[in-house]
Design a protein around this nucleic acid. Structure first.
Length: 422
RNA sequence: GGAGAGGUGGCAGAGCCUGGCUGAAUGCGCCGCACUCGAAAUGCGGUAUACACCUAGUGUAUCGGGGGUUCGAAUCCCUCCCUCUCCGCCA
């Protein structure tokens, strides 16, 4: 949520930002609504002030034992008028809020400007692509041959997009999750969280999934609960409606969760194998930081996510998303894309974003500054660290051998209890 | 699922029956000053947020959310949400 003051004071800057994000929002309409709203509030305040003065006089008279029937009769009319105006003001305010909730965050100055994803910038590339002198297989082939997963039976049980991992595939999934969590908790000092997987509407509202992207979420009508699309949702809301101490910042939290996405509108896209699923596993990092540090923290959370790929020895690149490719709530975002030699393409395995105070405003997440004791909104960031399905794809395809086996990277030998699959 | 209790400021906790200088006692915390070589203890003072404007100030709103009664609601009524306790059921 953008602050109205910011919109009011920098309408041109906001308009430019919205345009860069390919958003068509009638800001002038909102500004006009805001003006009308404030105008009515002003009127209302004056009427209320009058009422308060009169009530006080009536109270005084009553204490003195005098009667004030005339004054009461007069105030009755004022009171009715106040009620009408109150209704008007609250309707205006509600409309205004609904409009504000649909305004996305504004891109940071350093975000590359562009009409589509071709404007995204590759910031750096790490490692080398697999150079094989044999026919490279896709993860689907490998998985089927080695019985790591059974997508047909997964579909039988739950429909397409719900993977069934089996045997060593299931174990590899568990090992990867655990490995990533340990890295962030032990080495990077994150606090481990195991969050609820179903939340109230307020939680995705804070993060920006609601109200605009309701169709992408699984919803349990009977209990009015949403399945989380990422652990970002419950973890970001840990401190909603709270005032943190400056000493609590930066607050670094890492959480595993299953993630549920309806992927409405993306049917027929990346349906192949594990590339796009309705349910998947992810380790997510969330940071609550002081505003002035948030862009440094964005760099740091990105490198913390990169470290997973480096330790697994996977070829990847860091991409700065352009204005048009930024998500609704993000002011700046780096994607981590891992190279999948079997697919022959880069796969997004992580998104590291700075939301500035956008989510903090929606969720009312604040902190008290030590210096002047004032309360201000924190900045929130998050980064996948990482999502497993595409990581698994890259891993299987990168470490395949000519004889159809998987030679696991060093760091997985001990937790897997073996060096080779197959 | 059944029965009961409760939701008040950064926190704890009065006020609600008996509506009227109650934005809200008191305590803790925090800040300033005094005392001190310094600290603790003590004393004095201060300490919510948002919005607006005729901006050393003033006004309005906010006691879980919404609605109602009333000249006037933290206080009365309705409704929704949430938390806790006990019983039942269950992993």
């Amino acid at each position: 949520m953008l602050s109205l003051t910011r919109i009011r004071n920098n309408p041109d800057q906001i308009k430019a930002g919205l345009e860069a994000k390919n958003e068509s929002i009638d800001l002038d309409k909102i500004l006009k609504l805001d003006e009308e709203h404030r105008d009515k509030i002003h009127q209302l305040n004056e009427m209320r002030a009058e009422r308060n003065r009169a009530s006080e006089a009536i109270a005084e008279a009553k204490r003195a034992g005098k009667d004030s029937d005339d004054a009461i009769a007069a105030m009755r009319k004022v009171s009715d008028a106040i009620k009408d105006l109150e209704k008007e003001v609250s309707n205006l305010g509600q409309t205004l809020d609904e409009q504000l909730e649909l305004i996305p965050n504004i891109p940071h100055d350093t975000v590359p400007v562009g009409q589509d994803e071709s404007a995204n910038q590759v910031i750096r590339e790490w490692g080398e692509p697999l150079a094989a002198d044999f026919d490279i297989k896709s993860h689907v082939e490998i998985g089927l041959e080695l019985n790591l997963f059974d997508l047909e039976r997964g579909s039988k049980i739950s429909g397409s997009g719900f993977p069934l991992l089996t045997g060593l595939g299931a174990k590899l999934e568990r090992v990867l999750i655990n490995y990533m969590l340990e890295l962030h908790v032990q080495k990077h000092g994150f606090t481990e969280i195991f969050p609820p997987f179903l939340t109230r509407a307020e939680a995705p509202r804070t993060c920006g999934q609601l109200p605009k992207f309701a169709d992408d979420m699984y919803y349990i009508e009977k209990d009015d609960l949403y399945l989380i699309p990422t652990a970002e949702v419950p973890v970001t809301n840990i401190f909603s409606d709270e005032i943190m101490d400056e000493g609590d910042l930066p607050g670094n939290y890492a959480a595993y969760s299953a993630c549920f996405r309806r992927e409405a509108g993306s049917y027929g896209k990346d349906t192949h194998g594990l590339l796009r699923l309705h349910q998947f596993n992810k380790v997510e990092m969330v940071k609550f930081v002081e505003p002035k540090t948030s862009y440094d923290e964005l760099e740091s959370i990105t490198s913390q996510a990169e470290e997973v790929l480096q330790q697994l020895g996977l070829h990847y690149r860091v991409v700065a998303l352009s204005t048009s490719d930024l998500s609704f709530a993000a002011a700046k975002c780096y994607d981590l894309e891992v190279w999948a030699p079997g697919e022959g393409k880069w796969l997004e395995v992580s998104s590291c974003s700075n939301f500035e105070d956008f989510q903090a405003r929606r969720g009312n997440i604040r902190y008290r500054r030590t210096a002047d004791k004032k309360v201000d909104f924190v900045h929130t960031l998050n980064g996948s660290g990482l999502a497993t399905p595409r990581l698994m794809v890259a891993l299987l395809e990168t470490y395949q051998t000519p004889d159809g086996k998987i030679l696991l990277p060093q760091v997985l030998h001990e937790p897997m209890g073996q060096e080779v699959l197959g």
